[in-house]
């Protein structure tokens, strides 16, 4: 786990990450109109230092690590959400409902609180 912690993606409320996030939101909004009409290309709006729950539809990232207690965490890992894997949020249900994500070539839905245990990192991070 050491190498994962060193990417500086941990504190969700740090000044740096907050400003980065707001910048991401701006750029995302401006891109929205172009993205929605054409098939989305993976890897364009890559986010890091945030949890999966904070992503908006069309955004993606690479998993850095999973928080939480063992049973739910093992389940997420077993469904293929392992460190280094690319995930993309396809859509979010109304009123803050579950997320529909693409991982390892299939669609998985999970609730917001489950998604908030999944942290994303900069790049395709070497995990072993």
């Amino acid at each position: 786990m050491k190498n994962i912690d060193s990417d500086g993606a941990v504190p969700p409320q740090s000044e740096a990450s907050r400003s980065r996030r707001s910048r991401m939101r701006l750029s995302q909004r401006s891109l929205d109109s172009t993205v929605s009409s054409s098939p989305p290309t993976p890897g364009t709006l890559t986010r890091s230092g945030v949890s999966l729950a904070e992503l908006k539809p069309g955004e993606c990232g690479y998993i850095s690590r999973l928080l939480g207690q063992s049973s739910a965490r093992i389940r997420l890992l077993e469904m293929g959400l392992t460190p280094g894997v690319h995930v993309k949020v396809l859509r979010i249900a109304a009123f803050g409902g579950p997320l529909d994500i693409e991982v390892r070539g299939y669609n998985l839905s999970l609730r917001r609180d489950e998604a908030s245990a999944v942290w994303l990192s900069h790049e395709d991070l070497e995990s072993v």
């Binding site: 669609n107 609730r111 489950e114």
Partner: peptide, 11 residues
């Protein structure tokens, strides 16, 4: 017992 919603959306 916390419920989980991990669910595959099959094609």
């Amino acid at each position: 017992v916390s419920p989980s919603f991990l669910m595959e959306l099959p094609p």
